[in-house]
Design a protein around this nucleic acid. Structure first.
Lengths: 224, 224
DNA sequence: ACCCCAATACTGACCGATTGGTATTTAAAT
DNA sequence: ATTTAAATACCAATCGGTCAGTATTGGGGT
């Protein structure tokens, strides 16, 4: 017997895949339904329109990705460093198991963040995401594990930035890139940086001296 | 007197801004020309079409951004760490001076990387970008400044990932985010990591021990 | 087991609006 | 007067969406 949810999922999966590959406005309703083995009319008996379909996918992302991170953290005991590791592992597994969904938020947000119909849902999802990461970083700073001069929210944004960017690069180079190597590099760079520890320590001292004498040299780079 | 290049630039600037905000397929030719204070016909006497216009913007990006980095590096004396700092400074300044162009490549690539008309130009640009960064990292490894276990290409991709992601987050939060603080965090995290040096060193030893006993625990995270 | 029927799932033709692009005309500069 | 830039009017194609109608389904009643 055919169940209602099955067709909806077929449509959602087809739409998700094409949205990610060609963008929202680059994807036609016809293309979605024909990929799902249906005709256009069928979509409108399950969704109120193309926009509604997108919002449903955003919900799907929210519950699967954000929800999954939250669940992971509930079961994660240990200090903030362990918890960050657990989150990275979850994200890595999630990307592996949901090749299209994992980049959905990033990709669609670049196109639709100024669209009144979708901006609230997209920004809201990013906010939930940030809160999860920010909390861990705050905890890590309190526990003396992470650098205390970091703003937790900004550091969380940096984490998300790196994560989004890595996924982006990974998708662009999917067939020419060793995924495992890449994720190891991601971990290593985010947690410990590019620079060798010995060098890093010398450099920090050197920088503090030059900064205190030069004053606000950084002003020229304000604004990213 | 009206010079040919002036109107072309007006059109390019208008197109660039809307492309970045609404995506390529989400932007109509009418919208572009009307923003430039012209009508549709004018565009077609300067460009062969919407696609040609986009390719011209890609060229613009190539010469301004990639070319700018190369020029910066030509004038940059010193070791790889100094050169990376110079590149980050250039990128930071570039983003400041070219608010729309700086995210152009990232944003448009998410939508068009599967489009036969644009994919070669987009991927080619990313490749040039990567070669510039990869070369510095190789140099840094040779000079003993950067971790020698990193693959230069993968580390370059990580740099680009972080850079793209940071720009993305910055655009999404443009009015609620201290740009200077954000770029400092970017620098700090990419070069030295999130974790405090003392912790990092302890952890490295600890990890090496557990890794050698557990074997390939990382297999589950291969893929990000 | 059979038929019947109401509810549902889906089709296919169609709509108005908008799209990228073209052809022709007008205006302006040299 | 000739050339060129831009405006105007127009086109075929495609877009998202609607709707009347057709299969297909599942659940009584007998």
């Amino acid at each position: 017997m055919k169940r209602r949810g099955d067709t909806e999922n077929k449509i959602i999966q087809a739409a998700l895949e094409i949205f990610v590959r060609k963008g929202y406005h680059g994807t036609s309703v016809h293309e979605i339904t024909s990929k799902a083995g249906l005709t256009k009319g069928a979509l409108y008996s399950h969704f109120s329109g193309k926009g509604d379909l997108l919002l449903r996918i955003i919900d799907e992302f929210k519950s699967r990705f954000i929800g999954g991170m939250v669940d992971t953290l509930k079961q994660s005991s240990g200090n903030a460093l362990n918890r960050i590791h657990d989150v990275i592992s979850f994200n890595s597994r999630f990307a592996q198991d949901n090749q299209h969904l994992c980049v959905f938020l990033t990709f669609l947000t670049t196109e639709l963040n100024a669209d009144v119909d979708f901006e609230p849902a997209l920004k809201g999802t990013y906010l939930e995401y940030r809160k999860v990461i920010s909390e861990i970083i705050s905890q890590g700073i309190r526990q003396g594990l992470f650098k205390k001069n970091l703003d937790p929210d900004v550091a969380a944004l940096t984490f998300m930035a790196l994560h989004d960017g890595v996924l982006h690069q990974w998708v662009l180079n999917r067939y020419h890139l060793d995924g495992e190597l890449y994720v190891r590099t991601f971990r290593e760079v985010f947690l410990n940086g590019l620079v060798r520890e010995e060098i890093s320590i010398e450099r920090t001292v050197e920088q503090m001296q030059s900064n205190s004498s030069k004053g606000s040299e950084n002003g020229t780079s304000g604004g990213i």
